[in-house]
Simulated scan of single mutants.
Amino acid sequence: MKSFLLVLLSSVLLFGCSDSENPTTCGVENPLKDLAWLKQEIENAGGPNSSEYSFLMQASYQGQTVFFFGFCNPLWNYATIYQDCQGNRISGEITFADLSNQKVIWKPANSVCTFS
Rank of each mutant, 00 (worst) to 15 (best):
residue 47 G to M: 10
residue 27 G to R: 03
residue 96 F to S: 11
residue 92 G to S: 10
residue 45 A to S: 15
residue 90 I to R: 01
residue 105 I to G: 11
residue 89 R to V: 06
residue 44 N to S: 13
residue 82 Y to V: 11
residue 17 C to A: 14
residue 51 S to L: 07
residue 30 N to L: 13
residue 64 Q to S: 15
residue 2 K to A: 15
residue 55 F to W: 04
residue 86 Q to D: 06
residue 2 K to T: 15
residue 101 N to E: 14
residue 48 P to C: 09
residue 28 V to L: 11
residue 78 Y to V: 05
residue 75 L to T: 12
residue 98 D to M: 09
residue 3 S to G: 11
residue 34 D to A: 02
residue 115 F to P: 05
residue 60 S to K: 09
residue 91 S to I: 08
residue 94 I to D: 00
residue 27 G to D: 03
residue 11 S to R: 00
residue 79 A to P: 00
residue 61 Y to H: 10
residue 50 S to H: 11
residue 111 S to C: 08
residue 72 C to R: 06
residue 116 S to K: 10
residue 87 G to K: 01
residue 99 L to K: 08
residue 54 S to I: 06
residue 91 S to A: 13
residue 61 Y to R: 03
residue 88 N to D: 11
residue 111 S to V: 09
residue 26 C to Y: 00
residue 88 N to T: 03
residue 23 P to C: 06
residue 82 Y to A: 12
residue 48 P to L: 14
residue 31 P to Q: 04
residue 33 K to H: 03
residue 54 S to K: 06
residue 69 F to Y: 06
residue 92 G to N: 08
residue 42 I to V: 09
residue 21 E to I: 14
residue 32 L to V: 04
residue 8 L to Y: 10
residue 55 F to I: 00
residue 116 S to D: 15
residue 108 P to C: 05
residue 107 K to P: 03
residue 44 N to E: 14
residue 87 G to H: 01
residue 12 V to D: 02
residue 73 N to G: 02
residue 48 P to Q: 14
residue 67 F to G: 00
residue 1 M to A: 15
residue 62 Q to F: 04
residue 107 K to H: 10
residue 32 L to F: 09
residue 23 P to S: 05
residue 96 F to C: 03
residue 31 P to S: 06
residue 93 E to C: 05
residue 24 T to P: 05
residue 87 G to E: 02
residue 106 W to R: 13
residue 39 K to E: 11
residue 72 C to A: 06
residue 53 Y to M: 06
residue 90 I to D: 02
residue 106 W to I: 09
residue 16 G to D: 08
residue 58 Q to R: 03
residue 114 T to V: 15
residue 7 V to Y: 02
residue 47 G to L: 12
residue 109 A to F: 02
residue 15 F to H: 05
residue 85 C to S: 02
residue 23 P to G: 10
residue 89 R to T: 09
residue 35 L to N: 00
residue 8 L to D: 02
residue 12 V to K: 01
residue 76 W to N: 15
residue 104 V to I: 15
residue 6 L to T: 08
residue 9 L to A: 15
residue 96 F to V: 10
residue 79 A to L: 07
residue 56 L to Y: 02
residue 76 W to C: 14
residue 21 E to R: 15
residue 11 S to P: 01
residue 24 T to M: 12
residue 14 L to Q: 07
residue 86 Q to I: 00
residue 59 A to G: 03
residue 22 N to H: 13
residue 80 T to A: 11
residue 7 V to T: 11
residue 14 L to T: 03
residue 2 K to P: 12
residue 115 F to M: 13
residue 55 F to H: 02
residue 102 Q to G: 11
residue 67 F to R: 01
residue 28 V to Q: 04
residue 79 A to E: 13
residue 107 K to R: 12
residue 110 N to F: 04
residue 60 S to M: 07
residue 44 N to V: 13
residue 103 K to D: 08
residue 56 L to F: 02
residue 54 S to R: 05
